[in-house]
Simulated assay, not measured.
Amino acid sequence: MIKNDKYRELKVLHQNKPKILMVDDRDENLLALERLLEDLPVLLYKANSGNEALKLTLHHNFALALLDIQMPDMDGYELAEILRQEEKTANLPFIFISAIYTDSANIFKGYRKGAFSYITKPFEPEVLLSKVRFFIDKYRQELELNIKSEELQRSNEELESFSYSVSHDLRAPLRAIDGYASILLEDYYDKLDDDGQRFLSIVKDEATRMGNLIDDLLSFSRLNRKEQIIEPVDMKKLADHVMDKIRDAHKGLNINYNCSSLHEVCGDKSLLQQVWVNLLGNAVKYRAADQEPKINVTSKLDKATEQVVFSVEDKGVGFNTKYADKLFGVFQRLHRDDEFEGTGIGLALVRRIVNRHGGDVWAESELGKGSTFYFSLPILKQQITSNNHA
């Protein structure tokens, strides 16, 4: 969950003036910097040593640090190294300012320590001012981006919680409808005329369909709440296991299933199993009425994107590619309920799972000739190595 204190901290930082840390062991140098920067919309903090600077970073969030190099006890290079090692200041931009270490070797050393810029004295005041303005603008832009990101994440979490609560609360009245409809069918069926029997059967069927929809919606809402357990996954074994379950559920149906050896990936096994459940299940469901399902599963390495691309090809009814962009949206269906039953959440679930693993999902199809669904997942490091040696 989003921590409210983090969001409030970002808002406060954005509302207040950015803070700049100036570090120099000579007061006259600090005073000169202060006078140069005093007209900027910033708060200036002065430190006469590396230790003083480190203490200030414990209590303040700085947008930029201006560091002298030659200082007693701890020079600017050492201070920069410590700043980079601490989590709070690891990304703090800093500029070295030096009148002594002006040779190329020291300048290169400064950049190697993580400096964003290196200014040698004497310098043009406008040069330093322009660099400071740049980092202040960059700091504010990053804050705005982080605030928007936090707001978006909070909105998504609130929407997911709302979906979960609504779906959960719908279960009780739906169970009552289904229960009373079952009682009427069992005890009063013969007392109803033909229309009454038909209407009651429709109520029962629609309650069942609504129950399936709620179950799928709950699964979709729970997905982001589930902590991923990342481990090596044998995708060939996983796909075959899912197909065995599908065959058990469709006894008497001759499913022509061909799965070549598939690349192993790292991911959450239970989530990736759900991907196969939906894609292989759809390949069986959306078959032509007069044909047995024909399914071909493959995988290949894509060097350019460093991803493994899996494909599930069927020879089913296909779909109009004009509406392909709707496939992976929640409640989006390209076939009527009286043609193929479903809730329109399965492929949205596939996309969310694959996206959470750092991959993508897409599809190709032609009406009456079948479809091919693709999804990509990051390549294992050993696959990259072995592929380079091949």
Score class of each variant (00 low, 15 high):
residue 6 K to N: 09
residue 8 R to K: 13
residue 15 Q to V: 03
residue 21 L to P: 04
residue 24 D to K: 07
residue 26 R to I: 11
residue 29 N to K: 03
residue 39 D to P: 00
residue 48 N to D: 01
residue 50 G to Q: 03
residue 51 N to G: 02
residue 52 E to T: 02
residue 53 A to T: 13
residue 56 L to W: 05
residue 60 H to W: 05
residue 64 L to W: 01
residue 75 D to V: 12
residue 81 E to I: 10
residue 84 R to W: 03
residue 85 Q to V: 02
residue 89 T to K: 04
residue 93 P to T: 08
residue 99 A to K: 05
residue 103 D to S: 07
residue 116 F to A: 13
residue 128 L to F: 07
residue 135 F to Y: 15
residue 151 E to V: 00
residue 154 R to I: 10
residue 161 S to H: 11
residue 168 H to S: 13
residue 171 R to C: 03
residue 173 P to D: 08
residue 185 L to C: 03
residue 187 D to Q: 09
residue 193 D to C: 01
residue 195 D to L: 15
residue 199 F to V: 10
residue 200 L to P: 05
residue 205 D to A: 12
residue 206 E to N: 13
residue 220 F to G: 01
residue 220 F to V: 01
residue 228 Q to Y: 02
residue 248 D to I: 04
residue 254 N to A: 10
residue 256 N to Y: 04
residue 258 N to E: 12
residue 258 N to K: 14
residue 261 S to A: 09
residue 263 H to P: 06
residue 270 S to Q: 14
residue 272 L to N: 06
residue 278 N to I: 11
residue 279 L to A: 01
residue 279 L to R: 07
residue 280 L to K: 09
residue 283 A to S: 15
residue 287 R to D: 00
residue 291 Q to N: 13
residue 298 T to I: 00
residue 298 T to H: 14
residue 300 K to N: 07
residue 302 D to P: 08
residue 303 K to W: 10
residue 309 V to P: 03
residue 316 G to S: 11
residue 330 V to T: 10
residue 331 F to Y: 14
residue 333 R to S: 13
residue 347 L to D: 02
residue 350 V to C: 13
residue 362 W to V: 03
residue 367 L to E: 15
residue 383 Q to V: 01
residue 390 A to Y: 08
